[in-house]
């Protein structure tokens, strides 16, 4: 089942003559885990806003083409109507706290209150996501006393409690330290088992290679590569779009020049593939010697 369908999408921000997104055609299946990569200014964040239903209604730009999320055309529905159907997590964890509630528990409840969920139903749902995000012991703390990583987990919990079929994450670890990033990645990974459609923009290609079903590379607002992680992340074109190779891929590419990686063996994108490949080369060399 197609969850997100984008046809002929071109988008101009107000007062801009250069499109932020250009001729995008895209279909995302329900439950698919899609990573969007690209250099700064490639259009990743704009695509996130489009896929959350916030563009075109909330922005005064010019949009050509159509975007359908869960059978709802974004032109015909307000962002309020998409709430609970699409979740969005942004880079800055502090800006995602409503500040209208006193504790972590109440903060997570805020979205449920907005959607009119019965107060008797709320505690169970909130406790479930607080456990999932490892925040259950912090339930009575003020959101302002949390660390950056904990706040981002709170932002995630605030979205997950709404149980949206689609979750869009715009560089959710960009402002976090390595420990905070690992915690957030761990939670997102659990979504792969829940049949949630996930679209994430992320610079950590190593994690993408291990987690994503599909990778889309953007360059100057256009989709330039689209396929499984092995196909996109080893593409010879990747560097021309300002995206660095993974260290495993780079090592194998360099090794190919010296005959240390067989040209018929696909380039690796994970540590395991890399170890397997180099072991194979080593055993061939030993056998030959």
């Amino acid at each position: 089942m197609v969850m997100i369908e984008v046809t002929g999408l071109t988008y101009y921000y107000p007062l801009s003559h250069t499109p932020a997104l250009k001729e995008i055609n895209l279909q995302i299946e329900a439950g698919q885990f899609v990573a969007v990569i690209g250099a700064n200014g490639a259009g990743k964040s704009t695509l996130c806003l489009v896929l959350s239903g916030l563009i075109p209604t909330l922005f005064n730009g010019r949009m050509l083409g159509n975007v359908t999320i869960n059978s709802m055309n974004t032109r015909n529905h307000t962002p309020g109507e998409f709430a609970g159907r699409v979740g969005l997590v942004l880079q800055n964890p502090t800006n995602q706290i409503s500040e209208m509630r006193y504790t972590v528990f109440e903060e997570v409840a805020f979205g449920l209150e907005n959607l009119g969920v019965s107060p008797s139903e709320m505690p169970e749902r909130i406790e479930h996501v607080l456990r999932l995000t490892g925040l259950i012991d912090l339930r009575d703390r003020s959101p302002f006393t949390l660390s950056g990583g904990q706040r981002q987990r709170l932002a995630l919990a605030s979205m997950l409690v709404l149980d949206p079929p689609v979750l869009v994450l715009d560089e959710p670890t960009a402002m976090l330290d390595p420990q905070g990033s690992r915690e957030v990645f761990h939670i997102i990974q659990t979504l792969t088992t829940k049949n949630t459609t996930v679209v994430i923009t992320e610079h950590n290609l190593e994690w993408i290679a291990q987690t994503a079903d599909r990778v889309i590379a953007l360059n100057k607002g256009s989709i330039v590569l689209d396929g499984n992680p092995e196909f996109v992340l080893t593409s010879p074109l990747l560097e021309t779009f300002g995206i660095d190779y993974l260290r495993y891929t780079q090592a194998a590419r360099e090794s190919q020049i010296y005959g240390l990686w067989p040209s018929q063996t696909p380039l690796p994108v994970t540590l395991e593939q890399s170890v397997l490949g180099f072991n194979r080369v080593s055993s061939i060399k030993k056998g030959g010697g």
Binding site: S52, L54, L58, T78, P79, G80, E81, F82, A83, G84, V86, G87, L88, S98, F110, G111, N114, L115, G116, S158, M159, L162
Partner: peptide
């Protein structure tokens, strides 16, 4: 908005 602030 994504937390339903203006949800109808």
């Amino acid at each position: 908005e994504v937390r339903g602030f203006s949800a109808p």
